[in-house]
Structures are given as structure tokens and as C-alpha cells.
Simulated scan of single mutants.
Amino acid sequence: MATTEGFRADWAQKDFYAELGVKKDATAAEIKKAYRKLARANHPDSNPGDTAKHDKFKSVAEAYDVVGDPEKRKKYDEMRELYGSGGFRGGFGGGGGAGGGFNLDDLLRDRGGASGGIGDMFGDLFGGFGRGRTQAPTRPHKGADVETTATIGFTDAIDGVTISLRLTSDAPCPDCNGTGGKPGTRPHICPECEGAGFVVNGAGGGFSLQETCPKCGGRQLVYDEACPTCHGSGRGMSARSIQARIPAGVKDGQRIRLKGKGSAGVNGGPAGDLYVTVKVASHPLFGRKGDNLTLDVPISFDEAALGAEIKIPTLGGSPVTVKVPAGTPNGRTFRVRGKGSRKKDGTRGDLLATVQVQVPGTLNAAAREAVEAYRAAGNEPSLRANLFDGSAT
């Protein structure tokens, strides 16, 4: 029969709120938001080989498993209150003998705890202990998140597109359906944990720690013959194709989340999520600046000097006419409203057309004569006069 020694005493000393970076009075929504941010940043699939982040992911998951559940959070706060008041420091489970200990069950009864003492009060919070060792069902777990990258065309990024993705991810073994046993064989209760799914190991100092059973991996059942496909792990690799909708206006490098499209859950848990990092191919004419499209438009010297009406292309639409005023300098940008990328609200950004004044490499005789006449007729001051102002000082 298990005793209060099965209690995870080290958890009483852990600050799960600090682990998640929230205050003790944080709302459930704040706790969930903090957990998702930390779990995403430290997920093993996104940080292969980074032991520190793997450990951080585990500690964050442990913290959220407790304070993310209203009932568990309430009992955890009660336990922390007892610890903070010195209620745990005399040891657990002992009588009031020479050792100076006390019976924590009696203490909890005195404080109005359940009639079963600490086992009833904290049993479901720390994995089950108390009057007897009973078999607890293995909890469902969410499947792992999956990361992939997709490259799409420039126009598809502006208008949105549905793409096909071929994914390979962790999944239950197809031959044993995740049991880990050889197909056709029958399981029996794990002799190591007696079907509890966990074992209790001494940690010194009068404490005992509850750990997942190393023989059955917490599944509570074992097979005499392991599945030859997964070698008893119950897991395998699954290849599948899915259709993913990339929204209009997606930017290069943007990360799209597709809920429930990741790896399958464990023991009936929900599937993980799929995160698609989008790479957008370049366009031979157009560029992108936020929700606006950009376009370099060449114009001649006479068009810049005398003014002109020019036609320019739009992405996927009819050409538009832009009026270039006389005396337009090189590099001036004209805005064509509503011809840019699609925004989240359904409207479109603008097309930013920047003129580039072109100087001919060669001139025929008539053109040279006209330019020389222009030079002779000009009465403008030197364009470089200001370069020499104050140069002698």
C-alpha cells in the first residue's frame, strides 16, 4: 500500500508560476498564452540537439499541467501555502515521536482536508497515492507539432493559393496500432508497476519520487513479444499529403499555423499543429513593400523634362495611365491606389511606381544637334555651383 511518501515533495518547492513567467494571480488565459509561447520556443522538434531547451520544454509542460488546470491549481496553491508556513519542514508521515516529525494526514484533517488525508487531497494532482495503489488510466496527450517549408509564386502570395504538402511525421505504429506488442498476441499487466503505470523510488531524506514505469513506459500493459516493426515503442513514421490554404497577402518568411494538421495524438489526445514557413519567389517586374507593390518605370529625358502620360502594368490587371508632370526628377515615386497586395480586411494596398530617367548611350546626328541647341539656349546657373561654396575655408 502506498503512503504519503509517494508525494512529489520537490514540487512543493517549485514555483510553477515563475516557470511560466506569470504572477500567482494570473488569469487562465494569461497562463495559457505564456505556456504556448514558451512551448513553441523550446519544442524539441524545433530545437534538435538543444538539451537546455528540451529541459525547459519539459519543465514548462510540467508547470502548465498543474496551474493550467483549475482544480489542480487550487490544490497546488493550498500545498504551497502549507509549505510556506513551514508545515512540510518537519518531514512527512512520521508520528510525533523522537524524530520530531508529524503526520501530515493528521495536519490536513485538522485544516479541514478530506477524510482520506493527503492521499485524497493531492492524489489526482501528483499521480495517485493514498489508501491503495490502483491502476490509473494513461492520460491522453496532444500530438507533436510539425514544421515544414513551402515555396510559392509571387502572384500566389498576393492572391492566395491552395497547395499540396507531403508530410512525414511521428504516428502510432501502423502494425500494432500503437500498443508496442506483436500483432496477434495478448497483453498482460506490467509486473514492474503492477499496472499502475508508475513506480516509486526513494530519493533520500525520507522522500520518495513517483516516476514513469521504465518497463511499460506508463502504458500499464506489456507484451511478451514486441512488435517487429516498431520494436515495442508503439510509434512509427507516417507519410501523408494534405491540402493547405495559404491566405492572400502572405509575406516572405511568414509562419502559417494549421490547427490539428500535425502528428496524431496519443491515447485519444488531439493532433498537433502544422506550422508552414512560406517562401515567396521573386517577380521579374514587381517588388513588395508591406502591403504595397513596387515597380521601377523607365522614362526618357524629354518625358521627364516636358511631361507625359505613360502606361504602366499592374499585377494581374489592366495597365493604368500615370501622368508625369514636366520637370519630374529621376527617382520620383507615383502612387496608384488599390493596385497593391491584398490586406487582411480584404482591401488592397497601393502600387508605388518610381521613375528612372534613361540617358541614351548614343545619339544620331539630329538628336545631337537638338541637344547642343538645348545646351546653347539654356540660361540656368551651374548645377554644381553649390559644391564650391565655402570650399576655401
Rank of each mutant, 00 (worst) to 15 (best):
G316S: 07
G316K: 03
G317Q: 12
G317S: 10
S318M: 04
S318N: 09
P319I: 12
P319Y: 08
V320C: 03
V320M: 04
T321M: 12
T321C: 10
V322W: 11
V322H: 06
V324C: 07
V324R: 05
P325M: 12
A326T: 13
G327L: 09
T328E: 04
T328W: 05
P329Y: 03
P329F: 11
N330A: 13
G331T: 15
R335P: 00
R335C: 00
V336R: 01
V336W: 02
V336F: 02
R337V: 15
R337W: 05
G338N: 00
K339N: 03
K339F: 09
K339E: 10
G340F: 08
S341N: 10
S341K: 05
S341V: 14
R342L: 13
K343Q: 13
K343V: 08
K344Y: 05
K344Q: 14
K344V: 12
D345I: 05
D345R: 03
G346P: 14
G346A: 14
R348P: 14
R348T: 08
G349M: 00
D350A: 01
D350I: 05
L351M: 02
L352M: 10
A353K: 04
T354L: 07
T354E: 12
V355D: 02
V355L: 06
V355E: 05
Q356A: 13
Q356L: 11
Q356D: 14
V357E: 02
V357K: 01
V357P: 06
Q358I: 02
Q358M: 12
Q358G: 10
V359W: 14
V359C: 07
P360G: 00
P360H: 07
G361Q: 11
G361M: 08
G361K: 09
T362M: 13
T362N: 03
T362E: 12
L363Q: 11
N364I: 07
A365H: 10
A365K: 11
A365Y: 06
A366C: 06
A366T: 08
A367D: 09
A367K: 06
E369T: 06
E369P: 05
E369A: 14
A370K: 13
A370I: 07
A370L: 09
A370S: 05
E372I: 08
A373W: 05
A373L: 13
Y374C: 10
Y374R: 14
Y374E: 10
R375Q: 07
R375A: 08
R375K: 02
R375T: 14
R375S: 07
A376C: 03
A376I: 00
A376V: 02
A377W: 08
N379P: 01
P381M: 03
P381Y: 01
P381N: 02
P381K: 08
S382M: 15
S382I: 03
